[in-house]
Design a protein around this nucleic acid. Structure first.
Lengths: 210, 210
DNA sequence: CAATTTTTGTACCGAGCGGTACTGATCCGA
DNA sequence: TCGGATCAGTACCGCTCGGTACAAAAATTG
């Protein structure tokens, strides 16, 4: 039984994409239902029927964002050495927050850093998902210690935190309109700092003064 | 002529302080007039008469924040060497975003990273003021180059950007509830990265593996 | 061709938004 | 003691918010 009533007049996935851009640019609270429906090209009842409401729509948007705009993180984790993991993460993050075909910055931060009291769970949800990413990186770096890729006295949790902090700073900077090349410079400094602080083996080229 | 009519029944400065906490915790858009007046202990017309409206109140709050909660930046700039400037900045920033008597994070970021279209100037204003701070740091580091405190080939602009990025990342992390000591670890890693990338003279103790 | 099912668009809901008119209360100087 | 000036508090403004009731429209099923 493929479909039983009137068929949907819009592509659910494509409309989700449009909603993502609105939330990304305006944040959760700053995106009104009118903004969303206009960008998605549908009416309010359709939105409610298809996604369940504003908050549910936002959570679906975040899931889509994690699956598609944060895919670089999974690639980074798959790198063979801790240095390459972090290098990939930092460099790809810069590209991700400065993509010309996307709003500047990162949905997780633009979405809602601070919220009105009734929407506080939104900010908490976003913060929790960022910290989950940090934990995943810490696990990856811990594996690097196990494998002898990082010195035994390296602190994977602290190092992962540093990397994520730089990532978040990049997102804020990008949202302020700072250019990609400028952030790339900063990412290299951070990478050098990671290498120095962790004792990670650096492939070949020297750190060099900036 | 000290005062000509009925005297004000509240302390303008103290009420501004209360308003700051509300904006800091809930952001510009997330802070409603009711939230503000309740926290300030005044009525809406009083707020309007004393401050001029919500946006003007917010700008006054930001000015107060810059003068009082960002005072550590001026202290940092006054340090004799680039290393100490950055060390002070990073360490004091961690303290500032994790003060137990204040909301977590930084008003400039919590205030509004993303806003609805009519409030977009707010986000722009906050971003611009952060970038102004970055420029000031770059100037200070350029002076360090002139003074021979930093190598001639050091890039003050890039280094300042890196430091501010870490600062902003700390603010995001703090707002997510991360503890002060955890951020302090990250600040030391960043400081080591700054030293390595800039070629700054480090006072005495070694960088050390984290 | 109904009958049924689902989506669509309009029009509306109560609530809260930022902002303000207006009445009383409270101070000053004359 | 009174007039002018300023502030406090209530009650309200138009508007937008997120969410929904309802009927017309469009598809499948018999």
């Amino acid at each position: 039984m493929p479909q039983r009533g009137r068929p949907r007049g819009f592509d659910v996935d494509e409309a989700l994409e449009r909603a993502m851009e609105v939330f990304w640019r305006q944040g959760y609270e700053g995106a009104s239902m009118s903004d969303l429906t206009e960008a998605m090209g549908i009416n309010k009842p359709s939105l409610y029927a298809a996604y369940g409401g504003k908050e549910e729509l936002f959570r679906k948007v975040v899931a889509r964002y994690a699956a598609q705009d944060m895919a670089y993180a999974r690639d980074a984790f798959a790198q063979p050495t801790a240095y390459e993991v972090v290098a990939t993460l930092l460099r790809e993050n810069v590209l991700a927050v400065t993509r010309p075909d996307r709003p500047a910055g990162c949905l997780s931060i633009q979405g809602g850093t601070a919220c009105a009291t009734p929407n506080a769970p939104i900010a908490g949800f976003l913060a929790a998902s960022r910290l989950a990413g940090e934990r995943a990186l810490a696990d990856r770096l811990a594996r690097a210690v196990d494998e002898g890729d990082l010195p035994a006295d390296a602190d994977p949790v602290a190092l992962a935190r540093f990397v994520m902090i730089v990532t978040e700073g990049h997102a804020i900077h990008a949202a302020a309109g700072v250019a990609r090349e400028d952030l790339q410079q900063a990412a290299e400094i951070a990478l050098a700092g990671f290498a120095a602080a962790s004792g990670a083996r650096v492939p070949e080229q020297a750190t060099g003064t900036v």
